Computed example of a mutant assay.
Amino acid sequence: MLVSPQDIRWLFVAKALIVPVAWLAMLIWAFVKVPATSGFFVQHSTLTGSRLSWAWLSSLNAALGLYSTLAVNIPDFTRYAKDERAQYVQLAIIPVAFTLCGFIGMAVTSVGIVLYNRVLWDPLHLVDQWDNRAAAFFASLAFALATLGTNVSANSLSAANDMTVLAPRYINLRRGQVICAILGGWALCPWEILASAQGFLSFMNGYTVFLGPFAGIMVSDVCHVHVSPLRFYPSFRRAQYWLVHRGKVDVPAMYQPHGRYRYTYGFNWRAVLAIIMSVPPTFPGLIRSINPKIKIGGAEFLFDVAWMFGFCVASIVYSTTSLLFPARRTFMEQPIISDEILDDANEVEKPSNRSLT
């Protein structure tokens, strides 16, 4: 909280260098302790038929929930990039890294079952069983660094950015992070979420009820009011807001509370309708995940695919209503970029060509 986001890159560089080494070391330890030929994965699903299919979809949805926060708050970090090419590395790294993390988690947990006769799905509980105190210390240190970096990127800074938009007069980034620490660290009792694997997965599924629709609307059209003192970066030059405005956006107006993207009293009714159509249908499943005694019938299966359902429904509803009932003030013949960028590129446009009302 005391370090500016522009200066915190060192933390993520350290995380990128240290944490993967710890993961791979644990995977090597697992293969040495229990070779794959001697029965590596000792637990198998007892589900069959449609129950197995829905359980698989539920697990996929939980995995999506784990990373759905970054899917919607990644602009909180890409705004600091030098250009849009800086993010392309994610196309290669993210699928490989996420797949490797998932496999290491399954492999190491399976070894824990063989060695300790317990399902130690939390790696810190597994590390606690080691006899080598030095190895346990360095592994725990790596996981502490991973936890810190993940919370800074996925929770602290993103929540602080949202709070600055809600009350820019009273909340800055540092104050927003303090509020997030108080709410997320104590008021919401996060230790209850981590009490069991099932509770953790249910919480991850609960995330997807809201974040899936948010992502669908953002992919369709991310033009919205965002008050920020930050300068406009060249990464907006070839930004593609795919379905509705097709990249023809007014970047400075995104930072103006009463600009062309204010819509109706600050609300875009098309986005509101998309949320109404996509979020409530999955609510019964969310309620049952909190209290399994509540019977909701077949609605629980919709909750198992909440992210995919919300993403698809929200994007379809928002795109359809935006094209059938367009907010004409927001459509332009050419994109409008900040004057600073235009001057740097010697591409200053005439005022008459800047917008189509």
Rank of each mutant, 00 (worst) to 15 (best):
L2G: 02
L2C: 08
V3F: 07
S4R: 15
Q6L: 09
Q6D: 12
D7K: 15
F12M: 01
V19T: 08
L27D: 01
F31G: 00
F31L: 15
V32Y: 04
K33D: 08
P35Q: 09
T37D: 04
T48I: 04
L57C: 10
L64V: 01
G65Q: 14
L70E: 09
I74K: 07
D76W: 05
T78C: 01
R79N: 04
A81R: 02
A86T: 11
Y88E: 02
Q90T: 15
A92R: 05
I94P: 03
I94C: 12
M106Q: 06
S110N: 15
N117W: 02
Q129K: 13
N132F: 11
A135W: 11
S140I: 10
S140A: 13
S140M: 08
F143V: 14
L145G: 08
T150M: 06
N151F: 01
A159Q: 00
T164L: 04
V165P: 00
Y170V: 14
I171Y: 00
N172G: 14
R175G: 03
G176I: 06
L183T: 13
G184F: 13
L188M: 14
F203C: 10
M204S: 11
G206R: 10
V209C: 11
F210N: 15
F210E: 08
G212M: 12
P213K: 08
M218I: 11
D221Q: 02
H226R: 13
R231V: 04
F232G: 01
P234D: 06
F236W: 15
Y241K: 03
Y241T: 12
H245G: 03
H258T: 12
V272A: 06
P280N: 12
T282I: 04
F283K: 01
L286W: 13
I287D: 00
R288C: 09
K295G: 07
I296C: 07
E300T: 10
M308D: 00
F309P: 02
G310I: 12
V313A: 02
S315W: 00
S315N: 08
S315M: 12
Y318S: 06
Y318D: 03
S319A: 14
S322I: 13
L323E: 06
R328W: 05
E333F: 03
I337T: 05
I341R: 08
D344K: 06
V348K: 15
K350E: 13
S355A: 12
L356W: 09
